[in-house]
Nucleic acid binder design. Sequence first.
RNA 1: GGCGCUAUCGUCUAGGGGUUAGGACGUGAGAUUCUCAAUCUUAAAACCCGGGUUCGAUUCCCGGUAGCGCUACCA
Length: 471
Amino acid sequence: MSLRVRFAPSPTGFLHVGSARTFIFNWLFARRVGATMIFRLDDTDVERNTQQSVDSIFEGLKWLGLTWDEEYKQSERLDLHRAAADAIFQKGMAYRDFTPAREGDTEKSGAAQGTWLFNADMRNMSREESDRRAATGEPFALRFKVPRNIDRTVSFKDAVYGENSKLSADIEDFALLRSDNMPTYHLSSCADDADMKISHIIRGQDHLSNTYKHVLIFEALGAEVPTFAHLPLLVAPDGAKLSKRKHGPVVSVTTYRDAGFLPEAFINFLCLLGWSPKNDKEFMSITELKELFTLEGINRANAVINFKEPAATLEEAFDPKAVWLNGEHLRALPMEELSAKLLGVVREAGFDVSPEKMAKITPLVRERIRLLKEVLTVGDFFFVDQLPDYDVNELIPQKGDLAMARKSLEKAREVLPNVEFKHDPLDQSLRAAAQELALKAGQMFQPIRVAVCGKKNAPPLFETLEVLGKE
RNA sequence: GGCGCUAUCGUCUAGGGGUUAGGACGUGAGAUUCUCAAUCUUAAAACCCGGGUUCGAUUCCCGGUAGCGCUACCA
C-alpha cells in the first residue's frame, strides 16, 4: 500500500503557526518514509472563505520552502462528496432531517446545556414520508444515523494517543449535507481522504474527538480507515488557544518571516513543540529533522509558545527559544548567504548599500543579531551619512568624565588622519595614543566608539573603522 | 452539563518501579574582551493532590483537581 499524507487547511484566516507545524510534521513524515504529500484546500465553507486567506496560506508555505506533490481544491470536488453522502443514504445509514436550521443561535449554549444526540421523529421517519417531503422541495439536512445499540463502541488506534474508543450511543447524529446541499466538513474531508487513498492523517488534536465520526464515515463508505496521528495543540502562555484576536500577530507565520526569522530556524523551533528526537539534540537542520522525525517521537501534552503579551522589543514578541535558535541558524549560514539576506533587509528599509560593503559589515554584525531585522538597529551607523543625535554623556568612558572624553577625541582627531584604516595600524596607533594620555585603552576607545557609532554597544572599534573607511 | 484527551524546572523537553530526575532556552554569578555580542565555566529551578499495588513509587492502577478539545446544517 502506498503511503499518502495530506495537509488540508481551510482558508478562513492567515496561515497560523499551528497549521504550519501540522504542515511541517506531515512534510517531514512524507519525506522521511517516502510518502506522497498532498495539499488540499478545504474550502467548503463558502461564506467564511476568502481569497486573502488563500493567498496568505500560500505565501506562508512558500516562505517555508517545503513543497508538495499533488494539489486539490475541495470546492471542485463537491459532486464526489454528494455522491458519497448519497451512497451512505442509500445504504440506510443516513436520514433526512427536515428540522429547520437553527438561526440566530450564535453561541453554542444550546448544545452546551444539554446533550443533543438526535431528533427521534426525523431519525425514525419512514422512507416513504421522507421521500414525499423531499419531493415537495422541503429543505433538509442529511444526518448520519449513528448506531444506538447500547454496547456498540467506535474505536481507532492513534499513532500518538494510542487506543481510543467511545460508546457510539454518545455520538450525536452529525450532519453530512447541509440543507443547501453543501457537504459538511466531516463528509467532504472523509470522502476526499478515502478517494485520495490517504494512508496517514496527521492533524491537530482538536480533531481527536471528531475522529469517531470520521471512522463511522469511512466504514459507511466501505473505505479503509487510515492511520491517525493527532498532534498536541500549540497554546498561548495563558494556556488558551492561539487566536489572532487575543494574541495578535504572533500567531501568523508571516510575522516570523517579517521579523527576520530564517525558515529553517522557524521550522526547527516548531518541531521542538510537541516532538523531540529523544537525544537532547535541539539545533537541527531540515535534513537532520527529516532523518530524525518519527510519529513515535510526538508527545501528548499541549505546548506553550512562550511569547510576552505586550512586547517591549522585537525579540520579546517571540518565544526566547525561537529567537535563540534563529541566532544559531544565522551563524550556521555561510557568510555570503547571510550577507545577501541582510542586504535584502537593509535595502528594503530604504538604505542604499552595495553588496561589497555589506560583505564587510556582515562579519561584524553576525554575532550581534538574532533576527535578520536587528541588523537595522545593531548596524544602523554603517548605513547612514549622518548619525542621529545621541546623549553627550554617552561619550564618558568608565571611571572617566567629559573632559577625558574630549581629550580622547581630540587626540584621535590628531592621530587618525595619518593612520592607514586597517586593523593593525589602527590598533597600534590608538593604543599608543592612549598610553600618551595615560589612559586605559578602553577609556580611550569608548568615546571614539560612541562618536563613530552613536552608541556604546557596538562591534569592535578597529574593524568598524576599517569598514567605515577614513572619509 | 455530557463525552474525550492531558499533567516532570518559568518555558520546551528526556527519563522511567530503586537515578545526585538529564538536556535546552531564559535567569543569576564568574572567565575572556576596547564596549556589546559570541564563547566557556558555574548556580538556582520540576515529577499536581489523595488512595492503592509493591520491600520500594515521580514512573503502574483508581479517584480527585486543573487545563485543553469536541459537543453547529464552522472547519
